[in-house]
Nucleic acid binder design. Structure first.
Length: 225
DNA sequence: AAAGGGCTCAACCGCATTCAG
DNA sequence: TCTGAATGCGGTTGAGCCCTT
């Protein structure tokens, strides 16, 4: 059997759309399976990274503000190269973005030599960190559904092959609901995100919208049973 | 206008950690 | 408890853009 070669390099718009749609459907986990399910010739790892750093809703893509810069400087002073920790204090920013920004803009500004930073790391009161606001829930991806859904027809999700783990079996079942689910979601007109998770407002059922969501917010898991 | 050097940022890589069976 | 898979993280790379000469 010949393993198909995985794509590398910059992502195409179509790939982004596919990934966005499949993550909306299946959630942010099991990236390998998700990569296969999407039909993308990308590794799960690559999909995960693309999602986290670029496609995830609520990401800010604009310039880092002066306040944000101050925060980065301050936290980097405190914690060193803990990019993911710093990113958590800056809603909408990714660790990658902060890391790049620090390297290109702030490294020279930083007063502390890099090797000393590791010594000064401490778990001081994180409250410095800025109660970051969250209101910024607007998403550029409002039209995700509209622009991406056609691929379900073109790319034959039904042809997917999954190994036989329980999750993947259930995933297969899910895929068979694909078309129905999408049209239903589209009808609902809104699948919003909260933090890093998508949740479908109502998955199925009657016209009144009293559907049952399969997203279990208490466990942060999809209820596939 | 062309060359080249520096900068930015998306993406890759490898290791560490966590999770699930 | 062990082991393999999945995920998280930080460092590095490289393409493309911009600025200077």
């Amino acid at each position: 059997m010949q393993e198909e070669k995985l794509r590398k390099g910059p992502w195409l718009e179509e790939e982004d759309e596919r990934l966005t749609a499949i993550v909306a459907l299946l959630g942010e986990r099991r990236w390998d399976s998700l990569a296969k399910a999407s039909g993308l010739k990308r590794s799960g790892k690559s999909c995960r990274q693309r999602w986290k750093n670029y496609l995830r809703p609520n990401l800010k893509h604009g310039q880092i503000s002066a306040e944000e810069e101050q925060i980065i400087l301050q936290l980097h002073d405190q914690w060193g190269n803990k990019w993911s920790d710093i990113a958590r204090r800056l809603p909408g920013r990714t660790d990658n973005e902060i890391k790049n920004y620090w390297r290109s803009h702030l490294r020279k500004k930083s007063q502390v030599p890099e090797q000393d930073l590791m010594l000064s790391k401490c778990d001081t009161d994180y409250s410095v960190a800025l109660s970051a606001s969250n209101g910024d829930c607007t998403s550029d991806k409002d039209d995700i559904l509209g622009s991406s859904m056609d691929f379900s027809n073109e790319h034959k999700l039904s042809n997917l092959e999954f190994p036989s783990s329980p999750y993947e079996n259930r995933l297969s079942d899910w895929m068979s609901c694909w078309s129905y689910g999408l049209s239903e979601m589209k009808h609902q007109g809104d699948f919003c995100s909260s933090d890093s998770c998508f949740c479908f407002p109502a998955w199925s059922s009657d016209d009144s919208g009293n559907g049952t969501s399969l997203w279990d917010s208490s466990t942060s898991l999809w209820d596939m049973d």
